[in-house]
Write a protein that binds this DNA or RNA. Sequence first.
DNA 1: CGAGCCAACTTGTATTTACAAGTTAATTCA
DNA 2: TGAATTAACTTGTAAATACAAGTTGGCTCG
Lengths: 239, 239
Amino acid sequence: MRLSKNLPQYKVVYEIIRKHITDGVYLKGDILPSENELCTVHQTTRPTIRKALDRLVHEGYIKKKQGKGSIVMGVPQGVGILSLSGTTSAVGQENLITEIIVKPEIRQWDTTNLAYPLLNNEEEFGCIYFERLRIMNKQPVFYDITMMPNINLRRFISRNLENKSLFNILRTMYDIEVTGGEQRLMAILADKKIQEYLNVKEGHPILHLNRKMETSREGFFIYSQVYCNSEKYAIFGTF
Amino acid sequence: MRLSKNLPQYKVVYEIIRKHITDGVYLKGDILPSENELCTVHQTTRPTIRKALDRLVHEGYIKKKQGKGSIVMGVPQGVGILSLSGTTSAVGQENLITEIIVKPEIRQWDTTNLAYPLLNNEEEFGCIYFERLRIMNKQPVFYDITMMPNINLRRFISRNLENKSLFNILRTMYDIEVTGGEQRLMAILADKKIQEYLNVKEGHPILHLNRKMETSREGFFIYSQVYCNSEKYAIFGTF
DNA sequence: CGAGCCAACTTGTATTTACAAGTTAATTCA
DNA sequence: TGAATTAACTTGTAAATACAAGTTGGCTCG
């Protein structure tokens, strides 16, 4: 199902190097082959290579230093809040279990807690809705609700989200990348439902995020609400 | 004191267009002159212009659409949490008053609440320390502590920070730009001091950020701690 | 042996040229 | 008149080339 469309060269190169970093072919501290070497390897020219590297720099995979080279920084961590990965990459995947509270299903939009107005076409199409609970070392830490319009996502509701990042599925299966977004952050006190899911007492402070994410598919937005017990696992992020 | 060093062309162009947007010469929804027009105006070529525009796109000032043009998005808002502006730009400057609780002074580092280890050279040099309170519509909303090493910041402690963004001062006076950083986010309950400063009761949830910011000056980091009463003014951010 | 210089790398900036692809509005033809 | 085509824009991608500037390690000379 992997779709290898006619990507532009610089994106192809970007994807290759990026994969090498995520797969551990290049480790943190390593120095990438020089731009000229990459040119010969990928049979292209410096501007193209540099465009690929620019993107890697921007996303935090590498850093460049004039006269020295491109230094691998590793897979960007904790970008969950600020950048473009899901919360699964924010805390490291070691002891993280994802429990599906509500399996992906098509239903009407629930706009009660939504901080953003829906677009017309979004309301027409149904809504793919699911709830997840992220458990770190047997303690529930994140509780999140995700909603997105049911536009051209064949077989999505039958996909298994456990221990997989939503963003990875969208990226690999549907060629949808999150390109940006906006969010509202606040500290609240846990209500009954949150107390239950996150296993906290009344009066416990909870970090709440209300996000709207923009994707590479025009007009396709992902809405999510995250509730986080930040007592033991402060949310970490780079920007 | 404005230092107009030998900036590369693309940065010059970037600065000019950026200023035009922040100054309101170009308004939200406007379409910038085409890349070819910008070429003739700035006496340069498309790749240079495109590099400047790339940066503006990346920072959210504009969006580009193939076949159409570069659409002005306005001054990026709420990047305070996620991107590179200060909290003053996060809530709009209308009814925002900045009160200096502790004027900038040179003192020893206070590492008690610092989530990051200090570097050696940072500890050797003193620390520039100050505390501010941001007041929205007569209600205190942000309380923040900022620390940075006292390295080559002539006259900094005599500068007036009121209603000015720290980042703007660093940018215009010292040519230091924040290039990125990391932060820890958590929801806490207000302690005595926070209760007093933010005028909230015991048990009130507070959004706490512990940030380390990286700058264009190598080895120069800015550490800040922010406490936010997010009850009425949810922190807004784009990414 | 040691300090300084220099050559061979690295990335950074800039120009020139070419074509592809998306948008828009005017023009043409039925 | 109205729909389809086309021309003239726009940005996107790519190559080839050149030189500037920072880094490194080896070489030379004292």
